[in-house]
Simulated scan of single mutants.
Amino acid sequence: MRRRYVFGLLMLATVPWNVSLAQAVGQSLSVSTVQRLNVPVRAGFDGTVEAVRRTVIAPQVAGAVIALAVREGDAVRQGQVLLRIDSTASDQAAAASQAQVQVAQSVLNVAAKELKRQRQLHHKQYISDAALERAQAQYQASSATLEAQLAQAAGAGTQSDFHLIRAPYDGIVSGLAVALGDMAMPGRPLLELYDPAHLRVAVAVAQSAIDASLLEAQVEIELAGQPPRRLVPVGTRLLPVMDTGTHTARIHLALPFGIQAVAPGMFAKVWLPVPAVAGSGLYVPARAVVIRAELAGVYVIGPDGAPRLRQVRLGPAYGDKIEVLSGLDYGERVALDPQAAARLH
């Protein structure tokens, strides 16, 4: 009976000492309070790859297509002949214009010689002033006729050049609307061309999800058919117009130069920061989190000051903090040094 009495006194004396020890241990650990932070949330939007330079080539003259030098998908160089339109009538008109130039030049030569003779006769007072003035007028008229014929011949030559369709820049033929023998008409598209060196991703974003200041943060792009990595655009532009039907705005994201196997029309996933709801997320310092196998937890300081491991479900990280989706309440305290808390647990 005496041993049991002594053991009971020892147990009663130990209880308050353990509580004080736990409180002292909790005070010695570095702790942080669970906080609510307003951080931008990343959301994914579907986008499409577009060509910054895309050209629909149409003829300025009518005629049959007599030569077709490219096919869809061909890479072309600037100035390369893509197709040829029948220029028989235009060539004949240009030749006629050149003949008219030669006639005008001959008339001008005769008028110049006549004017020279009339000046000599006028100097010897063999002819009147009126006769000299007529010779001068004839020369000026012949000179003006020659200039008009030269201009007409230049126009005919330019018109003849319209029958050769050339590439305006280095690019890839993305569409061909005619075949050999088809009739080309002014304004009717012949082919399409785009510049593969300058591509962008266009994405439509809802008005409620747009914040121009958030676009200054990092925007990321995932391209279909590319290695599993996210690209950072080299330029971001929010167009200052809204679609009246869908109430969305378009954002253009310039792709880095030299990306291979990317073409207009490809699917792209764009990750944009969108405004977060006020007070929507609970965050703790990332160093307070313990990862064991597939489980995540934090050491929560209880009312008695003792650290206790609690399982939590984590969200995305933001800076040196990480979001806690479940397992913690606002205002709770967590240990910043999990190893020290584990030794005292």
Rank of each mutant, 00 (worst) to 15 (best):
R229V: 09
P233W: 13
R230L: 13
V241H: 03
V241S: 03
V241D: 06
M242W: 13
L214W: 03
R230T: 08
A197K: 05
A209I: 02
R237H: 11
S213M: 04
Q218Y: 02
P227V: 05
L223C: 02
Q207A: 15
P227N: 06
I210Q: 08
A217H: 12
V234F: 09
V232D: 01
L199S: 02
G225S: 01
R229T: 08
S208G: 09
S213Y: 05
M242A: 12
P227E: 07
V232S: 11
S213T: 14
A202W: 03
E216D: 03
V232L: 10
L238Y: 07
S213K: 03
H198C: 00
E216R: 15
P228D: 10
E220G: 01
H198N: 03
V234L: 15
P240V: 13
A224H: 05
A224D: 15
G225H: 08
S213R: 10
A209Y: 02
D211H: 01
V219E: 00
V241F: 12
V203S: 00
G235A: 15
Q218C: 06
V241C: 01
S208W: 02
P227H: 08
S213A: 13
A197T: 10
E220A: 10
A204Q: 09
L238C: 06
G235R: 14
S213L: 11
R200Y: 01
V219W: 14
A212K: 04
V201S: 10
R229I: 12
E220Y: 04
E220K: 15
L199V: 05
P240C: 03
D211G: 10
S213W: 11
V201W: 09
P240H: 07
A206N: 09
P228W: 10
A217P: 04
A197R: 15
L214A: 07
A197L: 00
L215Q: 09
R230H: 04
P233G: 05
A212W: 02
E216F: 02
L215S: 04
L214Q: 03
A217M: 13
V219N: 12
V234R: 15
L223Q: 07
I210F: 04
V205I: 14
P227W: 13
D211K: 01
G235N: 08
I210T: 10
D211A: 00
R229G: 06
D211M: 02
L215Y: 02
L199D: 07
E220Q: 12
A212P: 11
Q226W: 05
V205L: 04
R200T: 01
P240K: 13
R200I: 00
A212N: 03
L215W: 05
R230Q: 12
V203P: 08
S208R: 13
P240S: 10
P228K: 12
L238A: 06
V219F: 10
L231S: 03
E222Y: 00
L199F: 11
G235F: 09
G235Y: 11
H198Y: 04
Q218V: 07
P228C: 03
V219M: 04
E216M: 14
V201M: 12
S213F: 00
T236F: 04
A217F: 00
L199Y: 04
A212M: 02
L239E: 12
R229F: 14
A224K: 06
A224C: 03
E222R: 15
P233Q: 05
S208N: 12
T236K: 12
V219Y: 09
A202K: 11
L239V: 15
I210P: 02
V241P: 00
R230E: 01
P233C: 08
S213P: 01
